[in-house]
Computed example of a mutant assay.
Amino acid sequence: MKDIKWVFLLYAIGAAVMMMGIGVAIGERSIIGVFCCIVLLMVILGFGFKTKKRWREEGRL
Rank of each mutant, 00 (worst) to 15 (best):
I31E: 09
R54E: 14
T51G: 04
I44F: 07
M19S: 11
L10I: 11
S30H: 06
E57A: 14
G27N: 08
L10G: 07
L45C: 09
C36M: 14
L9A: 13
F35C: 14
M20E: 04
M20D: 04
M19Y: 11
S30P: 04
I31S: 10
I13A: 12
L9I: 15
K50F: 13
E28Y: 08
W55H: 14
L10A: 12
A16N: 07
L45T: 03
R60S: 04
I26W: 06
T51S: 13
L45Q: 02
L10F: 10
K50V: 09
G59V: 08
F49P: 00
G48V: 00
V39L: 14
W55K: 13
T51M: 08
I44K: 00
T51R: 09
K50D: 12
K52G: 02
I32R: 11
A16W: 05
D3V: 07
G48T: 00
G48H: 03
G27C: 06
L45D: 00
F49A: 10
A25G: 01
M1R: 09
M42C: 13
V43H: 05
M18I: 02
E57G: 05
L41K: 01
A15L: 06
A12P: 00
I22E: 02
K2T: 10
V39S: 05
K50C: 08
A12N: 09
L40R: 05
A25S: 15
V17E: 11
M42H: 04
R60M: 10
L9D: 07
G27E: 02
K50A: 14
I26D: 01
M20F: 15
I32V: 13
G33V: 03
K2E: 15
L9P: 01
F49S: 08
I38W: 02
I32C: 00
I26P: 00
A16H: 03
V39W: 10
V24L: 12
V24S: 05
I22Y: 01
F47D: 05
E57D: 13
C37E: 02
E57W: 00
M1L: 14
K53P: 01
M1K: 12
L45S: 02
D3L: 09
G33T: 02
I26M: 11
L10K: 08
M18Q: 11
G59S: 07
K52D: 10
M42L: 15
E58Q: 15
